[in-house]
Every structure is written in C-alpha cells, then in structure tokens.
Design a protein around this nucleic acid. Structure first.
Lengths: 244, 244
DNA sequence: CGATATCTTGAGGAATCTCAATACTAGTGG
DNA sequence: CCACTAGTATTGAGATTCCTCAAGATATCG
C-alpha cells in the first residue's frame, strides 16, 4: 500500500493564490532561494500533505520518487539492522527537507513523530526546476552541506561522548534548532519518545531515562508537563555536552 | 611513478595537454562531470600538492579557502572534543573530495595518513566555475549526497553495532572502496593505524587489536605483511557486519 | 475511569575501557 | 648488516559504563 493513503494531497497550483507565497516557514526551507515568480513554478508541482503521528513517509530502499519539505511537526529518519536494531539518523522540523537519494533509492526510512505537514515535490519535476533555477540547486546543495556537518557532529557524539554528554548535547541541539525556527527554546519541546531519543543517541531507553533523572537531580534541567524540558543552567549544560 | 610532478600547476598551452586531462583518477572525481574543454578551466585554477604522511591539510575552524581532491594516498577527517577525544568521520582515498564548509569555516580537520597527492581548488575561483558549469555543481551535489549516505551508515555503525560488527563493516568497506577505485580488494590495504581505526569506529586501540585477533582466530581474516588484511570468507564477514 | 503504552527505577551482568606489561616493526646510526 | 630506539601493536587483569531483565509508576486515550 502506498505510504500516502493517510493524507489527502491538495494540489495548490490550481487555486488562485499559491500556498508557497504565504508559507510561514519559507525562509527556513529550500524555497527561500526563489523569488515570487519562480516560487509559483514550485507551487505548481507541490502537494501538501498532513500526516498523523507515527506514519511512514517512505521506507529505506523505496524508489526515491519525491523530495519533501517539513512545514510543521516532527519527522524521524532511521536505518535498521536485520535483527531490528535501529539508528535514528536525524529528527526533522519545519523548514527541513528530506528525500535525497543515491541510485534513486532512499537510503533510510522516514516516519512522522507527531502530526506533521509536508510538501511533496515529485522528483522528476523537481529535477527540471533544479536545472532551470540554479539558485534552487545551490540552496539544496547548501542545505545538504549543513546536513553533512550535522552528521559529523552526530558521529562525534555517537563515537566519543558519554550518556550524560549525549543527553546534554541532544537537549541543547533541540533548543538551538527551535530558536532558529523562531520557536520557544526554553523550555524546549521534546516531542519524541524516550525510545526514539535512545535510538538517536545510541543508548537504551532506560539509560536515557536515568540520565534525565540525573540531570534533574543535579539541578541542570526540569521535566515539565507536555513533554517539555526546562534548561535551568545552559552554561552547565553546554559544559556537560562538551565533556567539561 | 606518482601521477603528477608536484609543486606548481603545469601550463597546458605549451604541450596541449593539461594535467587534469591526463589525470588517472578523473573518472572517480568531481572532475568527471566535465568535458575536455571545460576541464582546462579547472586546470587553470588547480594546484597540485604532494604531502608526506601525518601532515595537516587544514584544521577545524580554519577559513574554508579551498576545495580539494585526493588523487593518491589516504586522508583522514576528524573532530576533537576539548579534552582530546577524537572522532574520525571519514577516510578519503583517490577520487574523493574534501573541503565542503558551512559558514566559510571547515567543520573538521584533515590530515594525511600516508604520502598523499591532492588537487587544491581555491574556493572563490571554484565558485565561479560552479556557476558557469552546472554539471560541475550537480556532480558536487551528487558526491555530497553519497557522502551523506555514508555518514548515515556510519551513524548506524557507531550507535548500534558491536565491536566485532564494526571491524567487519570497516574491512568490507575498505575492500569495496578499493574495488571501486580499481585497486586490489583482497587482500585489502589498511594504511591507517589501530588508533585511527579505533577513533573511526568509536573503540579503543586495544579493542580493535583484540577484535582483529579474534576474527583471525575464527578463520575469517588473515593479517599480512605491509598492513594488508586478507579476507578469507567474505560471506561470513558480511554476515558479521550485518549482525548475523 | 479503566486499559495500555510509556516512563522510571532497581539489581545484576556483559561489553568495552583503563591501566600495565610485553612483543613487534620500522627507521637510524654504527 | 646488525643493534638500538621509538613508535605501534598485542595481550592481560581489573574497573566501569551501559545494557538486560524485571517490576512498579505515570501518562495517555478511548
């Protein structure tokens, strides 16, 4: 069954005013590269989609038929080992894109964490626009470079940081990204489960939980209602994250 | 004989052949995107360099003034924590490029592992060529995408694989990349130290050494002279790498 | 308000790390 | 050509972090 059964795609180009022009997260996305006029070309091929939480967007190995932009919500990307061990390679929020592929196959699976809105760009048509608008191509390249840098940070975290340092880095990362999106950075929303956090940081849920408790006991953070975390001492948290 | 005599760019007008035209690893590199004519434009800005082993190419935080292509040898990329803990984020061989940056700073350090030849492209001039040759831009993007996929594989390895699985994956990866370069894939050259391998796999040198010994005892590999490793049973090694 | 999933806490165990000693290798100078 | 040195690799023993298994607490959702 196709992964897109759950939402109803709206083709927006047909409607008078295209949605991209009014997109609240445009400046964060790949679309920020384009002017009003070019933007309408994107709008012609985009499909907006609203997905419930825990819905698969695509799976590792699927034919990479689309690129996506997250406009609201949270998405996780992950890879699996044959025995079920899972590594979450990234969490995506509004403004982030996904769907880059090698050899026309997705190299990872993508799933919503909470109710999420995405823009879907069919790959073939997107390729045409990329040729037509070098600015778009450069913007995509720039975002891929940023992602690559983030991946290298995450390798440092996975290979060399302790559980405590991992959790501290994770919380700071969430907080900083929220700030960049213009969202509240403290207390910071932590929409994903302990199990997702564990699979992102190379830990178990139990260790994640214990480490949160420990940081709480140390007066560095507070766990609030609605899966929010308040950072009580950002300096200390930063020191912890860096191994201080 | 090394592919090029190093020191300064060769003039191509005089002989009618520029160094890029004769580059033995061109098909592997970013340069494969270009035709003879365009290639000469690249050749105009390239500087060839030959470096001894354990030489720094650039350091994390340096102004990102150049892009590089490895044409021979081995390079390691790494990040450090303030207390000296190190994560090697990748090893590069002939054909691989390095030097992508975010905010005009290198996000990692680069150092030769053995005697190595590189092509250096000043960033400003490279940017001009990228605008002029969209093919080059696309090729760079494609290579960055491939690198991103490799980074995700490495995250899975770092976060979720055992020491044994890590070493098996590492050896298979080296072997496959050697094959892609048209080099001998079995026995495979392992030019980096145990300590480098450890910092790449998120282990200690002792654990790397013990795991090699263990795989040897199991009859899966043999350690040969000249830092080569013979894979005796690729099927078994693959199974181990995947957690089988 | 009860059912179910998620989260937290506890106790014991295992993989890997740390510290230490020994063996090997490659390069250097006699 | 060999002996010496310095670096690198291997092996060993004990420590430690994190994991596994298990139970209880809390939150979420119909």
């Amino acid at each position: 069954m196709p992964p897109f059964d759950m939402g109803r795609p709206l083709r927006m180009g047909a409607v008078g005013v295209h949605p991209c022009g009014a997109c609240p997260v445009r400046s964060l996305t790949v679309c920020s590269a384009l002017e009003e006029e070019e933007l309408s070309r994107l709008a012609d091929i985009v499909q907006l989609q609203r997905l419930d939480s825990h819905q698969t967007i695509f799976s590792e190995g699927d034919a990479a038929s689309s690129l996506f932009n997250v406009t609201a919500g949270t998405v996780k990307l992950y890879k699996l080992l044959p025995d079920g061990r899972r590594q979450i390679t990234g969490f995506l929020f509004s403004g982030d894109f996904l769907g880059l592929s090698v050899h026309d196959r997705y190299a990872y699976s993508a799933e919503t964490v909470v109710t999420t809105s995405i823009c879907r760009f069919p790959r073939r048509q997107m390729d045409t626009l990329l040729e037509e608008f070098p600015k778009l191509q450069r913007r995509l390249f720039s975002m891929a470079s940023t992602e690559l840098a983030a991946a290298q940070d995450q390798m440092l975290l996975l290979g060399r940081k302790t559980a405590r340092e991992k959790i501290a880095s994770f919380l700071l990362g969430l907080s900083r990204r929220a700030a960049r999106r213009g969202q509240r950075d403290n207390p910071v929303q932590v929409p994903m489960s302990r199990s997702d956090i564990a699979d992102f940081l190379g830990l178990t849920t139990e260790t994640v939980s214990r480490t949160f408790t420990q940081l709480k006991a140390n007066g560095v953070i507070r766990l609030l209602e609605g899966s929010k975390v308040q950072i009580l001492d950002e300096g200390v948290l930063t020191d912890i994250a860096e191994g201080g």
